[in-house]
Each structure stands twice: as structure tokens, then as C-alpha cells.
Amino acid sequence: MPHDGHDPLSPSGHPYRPDQDEPLTYWQCMEIAIRELLVEKGVTTDAAIRAQVQTMDDRGPAQGARVVARAWADPDFHHRLRSDGSAACRELGIEVGPMKLIAVSNTPDLHNVVVCTLCSCYPRNLLGLPPDWYKSREYRSRTVREPRAVLREFGTTLPEGVAVRVHDSTADMRYLVVPMRPDGTEGWTEGALAACVTRDAMIGVAQAAHPKSDGI
């Protein structure tokens, strides 16, 4: 570990997220050095790195929400999504990447939730970068053992008779939960449906719900 004179933990016990104006850390210094060496050796270019960062910034749960909304609106698409998730996403112009996508659908009898106990595998092309809690020791340790307790912490209490299925993303697959379509959304456009689909619902720690209306 580097010793640069800075306590790595903030008073609240959380790591700092140092950025431009904070004192340069050992690891930031390493990032700059690696980046420059990769450019000088012709592996990549500054423009390609900027483009990759931009691509990541452009990705977010909205992509996954589009996929779920289409599945709700079009049962044939939902069927194709379940049999070959990557190909179905491609129909919507979304490239899932080298890993294959498995879509798992919640039903009145079954609730799916996704975890990666070994690292932090996540369908980043559909949902963006994973939230901190998804990568936390606590989520990764407990979800495979007491998923219902974890769901309750996220405010998700399942009705009696609903089974839970945990998906541990151990190898080459990436998982997307297709939540249940909320009641009272018959006839909604795909755009309106997509607004019901949160990141947490697609990881499976929450249910889809009508978008919150502000101030009412």
C-alpha cells in the first residue's frame, strides 16, 4: 500500500472519491502512467479512451428499461428475449457485448434476484455501471443465503406463496430481471411503461411501479 500521508477513509468511514482537485493519489498516478504508456505504445489513443468513457456515461438503466417495456408490450418479443437475450436486445439496437444475456422473468409465483458473489458481474451495456451496494461485501455475502431478508431491506416484501430464485452470475452470462408489469398500465406506450422500470427492479431487489408523481 502507498503511504502518501492521507487517511484512505473519510470521517464517516467511507472511502473518498478523490477527483481533479484532491491531492494526487498513488493509484491515480498509476492510472495516468498506464494510460500514457498505452497511448505511446500504440495500443490505443486518447480519443479512443475518451470515446470509451463517453460510451460508458451514455449507458444507464434506460437501455434496460426499454427492453423490459418492449417485453411487456410485445409477448412475442418477451418470448424471444427469454430464449436469446442478446439477440433480442440487438433488435432494439442494444449490443450486450461479448457476454450472453439471460433474461429471467418474474411471475405471480416467482421473484428473481441477481448477484455476483465472486466479483461484480453486471449487464453494464443494459444498466450502466453497477451501484456500489451491488459490489459490496454485504450484498454479495447475504443475497445467496438470505435473499428475502436482503429484499426486505430494499423495501420489497413478497406476497405469500411467491418463491425466490437467486441468480449467482458466476461465469459468462449476464442477467436481466424482467419485473412484473404494474397493474393499471394497460394501453400505456412503451415510453410510459419504461418509466416504471428502475435499475433496482432489473437487478431484482425491487418491483416495477408507477413512476412517482412529484408533489401529489
Binding site: 448477484v115 456500489d132 461485501r137 455475502s141 449467482d168
Partner: peptide, 16 residues
């Protein structure tokens, strides 16, 4: 770490 005892899931989030 799958299955180990652990505390509540921390919910703070940060921008990268």
C-alpha cells in the same frame, strides 16, 4: 464471500 455473515447492505452511492 457468498454465504458469509455480513451486516446490512450499505446503500450510499457515489458518482464515479
Amino acid at each position: 464471500m457468498g454465504g458469509n455473515a455480513a451486516e446490512r447492505v450499505p446503500r450510499d452511492d457515489y458518482d464515479f
